[in-house]
Design a protein around this nucleic acid. Structure first.
Length: 477
RNA sequence: GGUGGCGUAGCCAAGUGGUAAGGCCAGAGUCUGCAAAACUCUUAUGCGUCGGUUCGAUUCCGACCGCCACCUCCA
């Protein structure tokens, strides 16, 4: 069975089949850049990254667009607080967002469209809606006429009555219907504005995603990814605008990422209970944070608490120790004579790859995928422990499989095991020298010298381990 | 009030109509000069509670309890 994805639109698990077999288009609702992103934002961005990696791994050619909302009420308010321009604030926090994403190992999207750079596209789209009778102008503002779109509510599965019942808080009396929403906001004093056929103003929130997605990915997207908080009204409104304008489905698979919680409550900017991604990255390696964020399937809430990253740290240690033990087995070409144990490990490796794929095909079940990986780690460790023969080929085979699957999840960092800078070679020589001296001391049973070298090196973040094949060393953090 | 979701070992988290993956932590042991790593064993007759369907339910149905979220800006 192939990939299945839970579609919020149908509320069912559906077989995945892209519109165009050659290329998969994905749009991800990115952040409003008035502040640094927190772990919750990171979860959605990371899920998007892993979906993209997995589809690429399966052989699809993926085009991903992730927007930055760089003009809205919060940006205006925050910029005023800080005494800088909206543009400066958005530029600075936008750059920080991309930088934080990169630090989390998230590959940049193919395009990162910004709202302020797509005003003409939005104006064109708004005009199309007006022409179709789906929008109306009042005092320089343009509103979307929800009644014009019969399917309004199909994503959030809400009935018109319920929406009306829920509508409250400063309803603009000028609107025809309380559910109608801004496409274009007439200028207010002191705010940034752009020219439009209806006077100076700025775009409403929802229109940017419709305009930018269509411009960069076409009128029908394969996949739309967002946090579940955006399902209503934002995503619902995107559908209303786009589909009424084009007469085509806007997105074929709607993927919604569940909330990251902190001590049982939703982590949110307005709750002021968030952990900034950059702060987490200052305290934990990228792979540890990634492991934590994918330790539950993306549609299930995940709780952040002081222990959660420590647990992932332990799991990553186990993974890295295993990979370090496999490091010398680089090629699977060697034609070993395989005994029972070797065949068993080869089968376990094949099983892991199959389980990994089945897990990821089941709506990107990363928790299950991790289970498959760690099951193989146990088998590899046991094999190394118990088997005398030098089964290079079968171990290299296992190593390749681990690196490949961990690479899809982004929890394997090849650089960890390498000495990176120019002084690396010299450092290697020095460490080797110290290990030689220590080995001599051990031969004399001079444990005092031997332990002193080991302890002092550990203080320098270099950990020595004695094995049957001699001492090994690695950097620790 | 409307809609959706969650409740599995000390903690986190998969999962299936046929008897519970994986990780962390903890205890005991093996290996080692010691350490580290690794390995072995131990840890839910039990999957919120109560009923129902079934030969059989943690898995399906119903009720109830508890928690969370969306309906208003937030990934």
């Amino acid at each position: 069975m192939g990939l299945q994805i839970y579609n919020s639109l149908s509320r069912k698990l559906e077989d995945f089949a892209p519109l165009n077999a050659e290329r998969v288009t994905i749009y991800n609702c990115g952040p409003t850049v008035y502040d640094y992103i927190h772990m919750g934002n990171a979860r959605t961005a990371l899920v998007t990254d892993i979906i993209r990696r997995y589809l690429t791994h399966k052989g699809y050619n993926v085009k991903l667009a992730q927007n930055l909302t760089d003009i809205d009420d919060k940006i205006i308010a925050r910029a005023a607080e800080l005494g800088i321009s909206e543009k400066q604030l958005a530029q600075q926090r936008g750059d920080a967002f991309l930088e934080d994403s990169l630090r989390l190992g998230i590959q940049p999207a193919d395009v990162h469209p910004k709202a302020t750079e797509h005003i003409p596209e939005m104006l064109t789209l708004i005009q199309r809606l007006i022409d179709k009778g789906a929008a109306y102008v009042i005092d320089g503002s343009v509103y979307y006429r929800v009644n014009a779109f019969a399917e309004y509510g199909k994503l959030s599965h809400r009935k018109p009555e319920d929406l009306l019942a829920g509508a409250r808080v400063e309803i603009d009396e000028r609107k025809e219907d309380p559910r109608d929403f801004d496409l274009w906001k007439a200028a207010k004093p002191g705010e940034p504005t752009w020219d439009s056929p209806w006077g100076k103003g700025r775009p409403g929130w929802h229109i940017e995603c419709s305009a930018m997605a269509m411009k960069h990915l076409g009128e029908t997207l394969d996949m739309h990814v967002a946090g579940e908080d955006l399902l209503f009204p934002h995503n619902e409104n995107e559908i209303a605008q786009s589909e009424l304008a084009t007469g085509k489905p806007f997105a074929r698979y709607w993927v919604h990422v569940a909330f990251l919680k902190i001590d049982g409550r939703r982590m949110g900017k307005s709750e002021r209970n968030f952990i900034l991604l950059r702060d987490a990255l200052d305290n934990y390696p990228t792979e540890v944070i990634r492991h934590f964020l994918i330790s539950a399937q993306y549609r299930h809430p995940l709780d952040y608490n002081p222990e959660s990253l420590a647990k992932s740290e332990g799991a990553l240690r186990r993974l890295n120790n295993c990979l370090a033990a496999l490091e010398t087995y680089q090629t699977a070409d060697a034609a070993d004579v395989e005994g029972e144990a070797e065949t068993a490990l080869r089968n376990a490796t094949l099983q892991m790859k199959a389980d990994f794929q089945a897990a990821m095909d089941a709506d990107f079940n990363t928790a299950r995928a991790l289970g498959a990986i760690f099951t193989l780690i146990g088998a590899v460790n046991r094999f190394i422990q118990q088997t005398e023969t030098d089964a290079a080929a079968v171990l290299a085979h296992a190593r390749e499989a681990l690196i490949e699957t961990c690479g899809v999840l982004g929890i394997y960092n090849a650089q960890d095991s390498d000495v990176q800078d120019d002084s690396g070679e010299m450092l290697t020589h020095l460490v080797t020298l110290l290990l030689d001296i220590r080995q001599d001391a051990r031969q004399r049973k001079d444990w005092e010298t031997s332990d002193k070298i080991r302890d002092r090196m550990k203080e320098l973040n270099i950990e020595i381990q004695d094995t049957r094949q001699g001492a090994t060393w690695k950097f620790i953090s």
